[in-house]
Each structure stands twice: as C-alpha cells, then as structure tokens.
C-alpha cells in the first residue's frame, strides 16, 4: 500500500516517519505524476497560504480534486485540513475544497496561544489522544455528509470525517502515538476494497 505525503512545504517528513513505522510504503508528492497508484494521501501541517499557492503553481489542484472525487483517501492535518475545506476563512487562494466543513485559520490566536491537550476521537480506541495545536484552525461548521470526530471540552470541533476524507486541526505526527495514522491507513485500505472495478487502475 503506497501512501503519498504532499511535500510542497511543512512537516511532511514527520508524517512519512510515522507511516513507515506502521509499515506503509511512503512517497513524497510534489507533482501530479506522483499521484499515480496511491492508496492514500496525507496533506501535512505547514503554512496553508504557501501550500495552496504551490498547489496552483504546480498544476496539482485539479489532479488532486479528480483523484479525491474518485475515492482517494486523504487526511489533512492543520494546514492540510484548511486545504481540504470547502470554506476557509482568511485564505485568499483556492484549496482542494472537497470537504463540507468551514474552517477558521489561526482560530486560537498566535504562537503564544498554541497548546497541547488530550481529546477523545470517535473511532479511535484505547483512550484519549494527546493533541498538539500549533497556530491551529478550528472547524466552525460541519455540514452533511461530513461528521464530527472530535471536539474540545468547550465544543469547538477539531476533527471531522467525510467518506474517505479526514480533517484534523492538530498534529498527530508530532507525538509517538500512531493510532491516528493507523486509523487513516484503515480508511485508505477499506477505500481500495470498496473501489468499483472501473477504478482499479488507480490502486
């Protein structure tokens, strides 16, 4: 199973390390040709303005949208969640715009407002996940078919899922706990099993 990590800017290396530890074959994605044969794709943390600008500059936006519409499993963390959202307040460039969520960038404030805390995530067994929020967004609105996976105690949504797409406001790649990535790999392998025969060339 080959999992891509979008490697335009951000902490793609940290994601690749976790995926390798879980036994996935990892490919850095910098161009449309790198999408060929992927089972899943992670869009890492980084600067959403930089990543969206480069997505457009390298002609990756349309190929990515097409692959996601065909069922490619994708997980976005922090900036990655912003890139996946249909609406991102404060982002003046188009992202992939495929998840029915509305996100607000830098919703908690600047770096001094960054924080770590434990959260429960629907579908992840074994107790709360330690979540690292760095200049993080929040998911202000979750519209069907997207659904909430995790919220903070004050009710603010920080994780959501829509079919094969997962958006997280935090950074599971920065801790030693691999459960979130393992969950994504399950989603990705299930998406392959469920793919119609006509899409087999994609996997």
């Amino acid at each position: 199973m080959v999992i891509g990590v979008l490697a335009l800017q951000g902490d793609f290396e940290e994601h690749a390390i976790v995926l390798s530890r879980l036994g996935a074959e990892v490919r850095e994605v910098r161009a449309a040709a790198d999408l060929e044969g992927l089972t899943g794709l992670i869009i890492p943390g980084g600067e959403s303005t930089t990543i969206t600008r480069l997505l457009t500059a390298y002609g990756l936006l349309e190929p990515l949208r097409e692959r996601i519409d065909d069922g490619l499993a994708v997980m976005g963390t922090c900036a990655g969640a912003i890139v996946l959202a249909q609406h991102a307040a404060g982002l003046d460039r188009p992202g992939i715009e495929r998840m029915a969520i509305r996100v607000k960038r830098n919703a908690f404030g600047r770096q001094r407002d960054s924080f770590e805390t434990d959260i429960d995530i629907a579908g992840i067994e074994g107790g709360p996940v330690h979540a690292v929020f760095i200049r993080a967004p929040v998911i202000e609105g979750v519209d069907p078919p997207a659904r909430i996976l995790a919220s903070l105690p004050d009710g603010r949504v920080v994780a959501a899922r829509q079919g094969n797409m997962i958006a997280l406001a935090f950074h599971p790649e920065l801790t030693a706990d691999t459960r979130v990535h393992a969950y994504f790999l399950q989603v990705a392998s299930a998406s392959v099993a469920a793919a119609p025969a006509g899409l087999a060339h994609h996997v």
Binding site: G10, Q111, F115, T117, L174
Partner: peptide, 20 residues
C-alpha cells in the same frame, strides 16, 4: 491544557520546514 512547551516551540519550526 499546556502552553509554551518545548514540543510546541519546536513544533512551529517543524511546520516551517521546506519553506522560505
């Protein structure tokens, strides 16, 4: 909830990787 930790400080730099 913790703030100003080593993980958060180093973590922001990790988000800047591959950038200018």
């Amino acid at each position: 909830m913790e703030q100003g930790t080593v993980l958060l400080k180093r973590g922001l730099a990790q988000m800047l990787k591959g950038g200018v």
